[in-house]
Amino acid sequence: MVNTLTPNSIDEIAQIVKDAPGPVVFDAQSAPHPFGLPTVYRQSRLNRGAVTDAIGLENFTAISLQEYSGVIEHDVDDQVVVVRAGTTVTQLQSELAKVNQCLPYAMFEPRLAQATAHFYGSLIDEIGFNLPHGLSAQCGSWRDWVLGMRVVTADGTIAKCGSKAVKNVAGYDVQKLMIGARGTLGLIAEVTLKTFPLKALPKPEMQFFPGAEVKAANWIQRVLPTDFQKAVSAHQPHLIAVDPCSCVLWAAAPGNESLQRFSEDWVVRAGVGERNLEFTDLTVIKLMERAKQLFDPENKLNPGEMGIC
């Protein structure tokens, strides 16, 4: 069986990564993210730890950041918070709410969290997966809120990117690469975020469909505004929620069914194994492989999680 390590300092995280003899996986606090890919590690875990492949589960080092959580620093006047990446979104929101601030992120319909694939998981997961949410058209998303990070790289180095300034163009924006990278380029340990005044929060314009409370999305699609109505009609029976502002649709497609695609759209999925995340553009795949090779030459961090290598 794998022992999930629960470090409680960034130095400890770095040491674990440095010492790990084989792959290092970031174990979600609860269940693995449904939109994740069937990595070797996940497959082996599903088989109750049976060693089913060449790598062998015992070679994996699993880290959970559940003990590495909480706010490090909150400049209320500047609306900037520095927080450990094991903090859950729920935890962070309640901290911020004490001073009438928030993150404009998935906080309005807690009972629908499951439906739209927001698990109020820890920041490391939410930023890693970077899934659409109901206020992205109005308030942006992680790439707009993350001002800086401290990450642990594949060789166990602690490095900082960005700053605490709300406007900063000094150097390359490495933090943007980490967002949505599902932990494959570095382990996000601390995040500096821009916060919003609660009273300035716009109302989300998401629409929910019957059964949204009990269904879980396995299909998230973003289409062009000109295709939005067509997509809504096409997916109607399966729809859970839609956001007309960002033209995102959340649906529960029965079985492994693929719903209709539209020009220039993109989709992320759950429950269809390797097809959860599909890249078709060869130049993009090549670039991604190159990035992975440079950041993590031994393919140590969350191997297989982006569907490349």
């Binding site: 390359y172 943007k176 690469l177 062009l224 220039e264 130049t283 991604m288």
Partner: peptide
């Protein structure tokens, strides 16, 4: 000297955010 097309009419898709790196590069 290779020609790459990154992103298009719809931003924010899955994958590494190369566009976020090029802007400001």
């Amino acid at each position: 000297g290779e020609i790459l097309k990154l992103g298009g009419k719809l931003a924010g898709g899955p994958g590494y955010d190369f566009l976020g790196l090029i802007v400001g590069g």
